[in-house]
Write a protein that binds this DNA or RNA. Structure first.
Lengths: 178, 178
DNA sequence: GTCTATACGCGGATAGAC
DNA sequence: GTCTATCCGCGTATAGAC
């Protein structure tokens, strides 16, 4: 599996449109023109709308795995890494973040996207439980992160939640912020 | 404004289909047949797809206001009432709950739905802050509730979160469960 | 590989009968 | 009020040129 740049550009455009306009309103035409190709060109790389979704699903799995690995290696610890990176901006976030938001939006319509999203959430829940030891604390941190994502979905900022998150971490996470 | 039973049945069917299949995949045909009327019949009551959405938005506002009033009057307190009723089943929940889940799903596509959802969330946030006094605690409880709804959106149960919620409430909410 | 042109089906909305 | 019949536009996918 090489890395065809054109495929990536198409997936980028698809992600953007899902995040900004929501799923199902995104037509192949819109994705194609946003990616700078024609509809025919798009359908050469992804044979159908279904294949396009499948491509994004794969990318989400890959990016989340990498993000989990980065969290485990982070000096601040998994919990702080998770909550910090969850408070982001859909318009200008990291690749993982934007892909995750797109995934959640797609989950409202596509069962396969929902399945992948659940799997990703479960991955974080496991990692958090490993670090925090306490299952209850892990549940709380995971749920707080989920709440932050829901706000992103409905277009509400989560900036004010930073303080609440730090308060929760002070009680749950052993490691200091620095 | 009387209460025409037929309108309500149509809105019920619309809500059900959004919850189960997601927005935008729900056609007027599907809503009509689920409600036991023809497409023409539906379009007599709601002149357009937009009007149908507007009807659900109104209903959401009404139901949420009533639910907030019920929470303020509940002996267990607002925080416990909120978290308890948030842990529900999309397939067989209360009217408010199902409407809220539908609203969030619609938020991924319809800006007006997102606006109403934000307003409802803000209402709960305010009520929680009133009761708990502490703004940080109110943020945490509100975010936990949001996280529970996100799980419902991606089709994941939140039953295991009951214990974590109770733990959080024991610290944040003054009143005992009984 | 990427494009244009086209076939095909579906969903929303209107007209008008009952 | 509720139905059937129909028009119209849009979105997916295919065929085939370059």
């Amino acid at each position: 599996m090489p890395r065809p740049s054109q495929r990536d550009r198409i997936l980028d455009a698809y992600t953007d449109l899902v995040v900004t306009s929501g799923p199902e309103t995104v037509t192949l035409d819109a994705v194609a023109s946003a990616a700078g190709v024609s509809k025919g060109g798009l359908l050469y790389h992804f044979g159908s709308r279904e294949a396009l979704l499948e491509g994004l699903l794969d990318r989400c799995r890959t990016l989340t795995d990498a993000d989990l690995a980065a969290a485990r290696a982070a000096p601040e610890g998994i919990a702080r890494y998770y909550l910090r990176t969850s408070i982001d901006d859909p318009a200008a976030g990291s690749a993982v973040y934007r892909t995750t938001v797109a995934m959640i939006k797609l989950s409202t319509t596509e069962p396969r996207a929902a399945e992948v999203t659940r799997r990703c959430m479960a991955g974080w829940r496991t990692a958090l439980a490993e670090e925090l030891g306490d299952a209850l604390a892990a549940d709380l941190v995971a749920a707080l992160g989920d709440g932050i994502y829901l706000r992103a979905i409905v277009g509400q900022s989560s900036a004010e939640l930073g303080a609440a998150a730090e308060e929760l971490l002070r009680r749950a996470a052993p490691r200091p912020p620095e």
